[in-house]
Amino acid sequence: MAAVTYTKQDWKAEADIQRLPDGTYQGVVLLTRMGSPGADSAPQTVNSVSETPEEALEEAKALAHRLLADVGGG
């Protein structure tokens, strides 16, 4: 399953998933400011786990939209 990238102004959010040791999945979002090569951002994880990668990716996409809304000023 491929990661999904969203952009807003000079921000980029990459939504992806990770498989957890127990076989469930969790959405992950990496938020970065484009043009800032030294500004590494820690990945942010979705608060819940999902039974399928599709569900986890949907949760990650929703988190990516919320993060971009916050940094983009609404």
Rank of each mutant, 00 (worst) to 15 (best):
A69P: 02
V28L: 10
Q44I: 09
V46R: 03
G27K: 06
A13Q: 06
Q9F: 10
V49Q: 13
D10I: 02
N47L: 14
A42G: 12
E51I: 14
L68K: 00
T24A: 10
T7W: 03
G35N: 07
A13F: 04
L20I: 10
V28D: 05
Q26R: 14
A56W: 13
P21C: 05
E51Q: 14
A56L: 06
A3S: 12
D16K: 02
K8F: 08
A64V: 00
E14L: 08
E14Y: 00
D22Q: 07
E14F: 08
P53F: 07
Y6M: 07
L30P: 06
A39I: 00
V49P: 07
D16N: 05
K61V: 04
H65S: 10
D70Q: 09
S50C: 10
V71H: 02
A56I: 06
H65D: 15
W11Q: 03
T45V: 11
H65R: 13
A42C: 08
A60V: 02
E58D: 11
R33Q: 15
H65M: 09
H65I: 00
S50W: 06
R19F: 06
G73F: 00
K8A: 06
T52V: 04
G38V: 08
L67W: 04
Q26T: 09
A42V: 15
D16P: 00
S41N: 14
G27T: 08
T24P: 09
S41Q: 13
E54V: 12
M1G: 12
D22G: 04
V49S: 14
G74P: 01
D70M: 02
S48I: 13
A60E: 01
K61W: 01
A3Q: 12
Y6I: 07
V71Y: 04
K12L: 13
A62L: 07
V28R: 13
A69M: 05
A64C: 05
L68D: 00
D16L: 03
E14H: 00
T24Q: 14
A39Y: 11
P21D: 05
L67R: 07
M34A: 10
S50G: 03
D40V: 12
T7Y: 08
M1I: 12
T45A: 10
D10F: 00
A42Y: 14
V49A: 09
L57A: 05
A56D: 08
E58C: 06
Y25N: 01
A64G: 04
A60H: 01
A15V: 06
A2C: 06
V28I: 14
D70E: 13
G35F: 02
A64T: 01
V4M: 07
E55Q: 13
L31V: 08
E58L: 12
L20H: 07
L63E: 03
E55I: 09
G72E: 03
Q44F: 01
K61F: 01
G73M: 02
Q9L: 10
V29R: 02
E51D: 15
G35H: 11
Q26K: 09
I17Y: 06
H65Q: 14
Y6L: 11
M34Q: 15
P43R: 02
A13E: 06
A42T: 14
L20V: 10
